[in-house]
Design a binder for these strands. Structure first.
Length: 270
DNA sequence: AGGGGAACCCGTACGC
DNA sequence: TGCGTACGGGTTCCCC
């Protein structure tokens, strides 16, 4: 479930730890996590290359090499680990660094992916994604325009990576509760003022979660195997049937909206 | 075009 | 207790 705050946590740690590191040896243990490259091509490109930076885009960690990019999308159980995992059976990729450290891509359920991009492919991938919510270049007017053409539910739109990058189920639920907006409202029904409030709420919850190194609901761990601290701060996600922190009404929960867990307060979300 | 649904994967939860 | 099955979850791909 790593969304924006969780992948941001991983990327910041890895950037500090890996900038300038050289990858000496590559072992592909579970080749089915690879995308856009065969195991042989992956080894050929990655072996001997230097890591120039590590960043985040949407819910992916982007490891920049000299000429290529590794785009790691952990999905539910994927992790980029600098420490020895508790169970090495789930190591999919093993990168030995010249300084003696090891970077592993570890994934129990293997729905996560590691793609290899050259510069042109990476630019195309990047341009297909929507704006970053924490980028101040995205203003409420632009966001309002992006939403007002759609009949889809606002919660579905928040999670549409072409419209906005990095927001998944947890933070979509949380931002809508904070903004007092019902998840099922059609995008085009939102007024300009409501969209401004929603963007403010979204930025606040993402920023607070990053400060606590993300939400570990079940599986998320950072590069050192440590859990995030934001789960205790969640107002609605995973709290169906419990009381709303604002008005004490029992929170409603459904899976009907795009098949995902949606939790909201029918009293204070309109 | 835009939206809906299946596939991907396997640990966990649950039923018998 | 032990086995079998349903489920979840984001993205991609396919189809209507």
């Amino acid at each position: 479930m790593p969304e924006l705050p969780e992948t941001e946590t991983i990327a910041r740690d890895l950037d500090a730890a890996l900038r300038g590191a050289v990858i000496d040896a590559v072992t592909v243990v579970r080749g089915d996590v690879l995308r856009e490259a065969t195991a042989a091509a992956f080894v050929r490109v990655v072996r001997g290359s230097r890591i120039t930076s590590v960043n985040r885009r949407a819910k992916s960690i982007v490891v920049a090499l000299q000429s290529h990019f590794l785009v790691v999308t952990p999905r539910f159980t994927g992790a980029l680990l600098l420490t020895e995992p508790a169970d090495d059976r789930y190591t999919c990729l093993h990168l030995a660094l010249a300084d003696g450290r090891t970077l592993r891509y570890h994934d129990i359920r293997r729905l996560g992916t590691v793609a290899l991009h050259d510069a042109a492919r990476h630019a195309a991938w990047d341009s297909a994604l929507g704006p970053e919510p924490l980028d101040l270049a995205l203003d409420a007017d632009a966001f309002w325009h992006a939403l007002r053409s759609s009949r889809q539910a606002i919660k579905t739109l928040l999670m549409d990576q072409r419209k906005l990058a990095g927001v998944g189920n947890i933070y979509a639920n949380e931002a809508l509760w904070r903004a007092g907006i019902r998840p099922t409202r059609a995008g085009k029904s939102l007024r300009r003022l409501e969209v401004g409030g929603l963007l403010d709420a979204l930025r606040a919850v993402l920023t607070e979660s990053i400060a606590l190194r993300g939400t570990t609901f079940r599986d998320f761990q950072d590069a050192y195997g440590v859990r995030g601290g934001f789960a205790a701060k969640l107002a609605v996600y995973g709290r169906g049937g419990q009381h709303c922190h604002r008005c004490c009404t029992p929170l409603r929960a459904t899976h009907r909206l795009a098949g995902r867990q949606t939790v909201w307060c029918a009293t204070c979300q309109r």
